[in-house]
Write a protein that binds this DNA or RNA. Structure first.
Lengths: 224, 224
DNA sequence: GCACCAATATAACAGTGTTATATGCGGAGC
DNA sequence: GCTCCGCATATAACACTGTTATATTGGTGC
């Protein structure tokens, strides 16, 4: 919470137009997907010229990168909104469901996130080690939330303490992301069967990672 | 092995040019990714005009769809080349490794396959039920191979017989595909750690799906 | 008020996929 | 063997795209 900087009104207008461009681009993204974003259409919708995108974002890539960041922020918000049970395992399950819920409600943003051709924007990039590309993502809140849930499960004894939390979180993320990717590609017939498959998959990878003690606890949850 | 049809030489030339276009497009795809395929560059490389793409494939979408099919064929070939152990569980593990091997060796093809914007070509589409989009994929050899391995594991008693083979295969596919998607996005620092994570993830989802009997067998494999 | 600088608008450039038009070549019928 | 028809092809135009060069405007500091 910083006090209001002595922003010039020109600076305010510049930020306002940046936001206007971002909002309009987001609206175009949600409506017609990433490919429907045209600088000319975007500029005319905001009531300016294409040059505004270059001064605000440095070009179309910068604009897409900004949308990329917003996608991760929305994901983090969805995860933060997931109910945080006292039981870490249940919390982890809620996070998995929140991840899928985000993907289903924001398919265009999700498609943007998983487009491998997307260069990770500076703000999400690890400061010291630029390589590998997506390393910065593991610093983002969306990943940190899941990581802390995993760590809580380790402290809880549900996950083996000798395993690296990153490994466990990565395995879980792979399964959840893999399912959502297939579901959005239309692999499942309808949402009901997709949800059944999602539960089966996430529960399977969870079961495979748990300690005997954690597995016992987990079975009591799934039965109850 | 059919006897040579009474093909007209015009038809032969047409097919030859179709193959030439496909080969050149494949080469461009592997080199510079999907976005690097330009009809003008492609046509000039083959020594024809852009109209050839329209007569052979109906447009760029048809060309991409043909590359899409070739990607699945290459995946099927990679899976078919995986050693088929007598032990179904080991076979399934080999298939998972072959899937990742394909993704690593053909990143551009893999990126094409997982691009959600890709409409499933007719030849891969389920004939009766056009919806959902990717249903036809489950008829492809690449999926059938994995499915038969899963069924062998069910017959073996390693997987519970009351579960739908499609469900089990889908869970496995989600995890394997999810990992490869993240690995190609550059999420892991290097290939060694990525491989470690891949084994952890696939083993976890396997363990979570196995019967007690199958789990016993599985543990004897991983220890030995 | 004036000078300067940054942001903008206009327009041009180099591409893209697609389509309309015209040319030419190959196969069928006589 | 010749004619004629049809289809594949080449050329060129169209409607776009992102980017860049140029000129004009607007706000800020002196």
């Amino acid at each position: 919470m910083t006090i209001a900087e002595p922003e010039t009104i020109a600076g305010k207008k510049r930020l306002a137009q940046r936001d206007a461009l971002l909002d309009a681009a987001s609206e175009m993204l949600v409506h017609g997907g990433p490919d429907s974003i045209s600088l000319r259409k975007l500029a005319s919708r905001v009531g300016t010229s294409t040059m505004a995108v270059y001064t605000a974002f440095g070009g179309k890539d910068g604009l897409i990168a900004a949308l990329f960041e917003e996608a991760f922020d929305r994901l983090a918000a969805a995860e933060a909104a997931a109910p945080k049970h006292d039981e870490p395992l249940l919390w982890l399950g809620e996070l998995a469901g929140a991840y899928r819920g985000f993907a289903l409600k924001n398919p265009s943003y999700y498609a943007l996130m998983i487009s491998a051709t997307m260069p990770i924007p500076e703000s999400l990039r690890h400061k010291e080690t630029a390589e590998p590309a997506a390393r910065g993502v593991s610093q983002h809140a969306s990943y940190q939330i899941m990581l802390s849930a995993v760590e809580a499960c380790i402290a809880d004894g549900s996950f083996p303490s000798e395993k690296d939390p990153d490994e466990l979180a990565g395995a879980l993320w792979s399964a959840v992301h893999g399912h959502c990717s297939l579901e959005l590609a239309g692999f499942y017939e309808n949402r009901e069967t997709a949800e059944k498959r999602f539960n089966l998959t996430t529960e399977a990878v969870l079961r495979g990672l748990l300690t005997p003690k954690g597995l016992e606890k987990f079975e009591s949850f799934t039965r109850g």
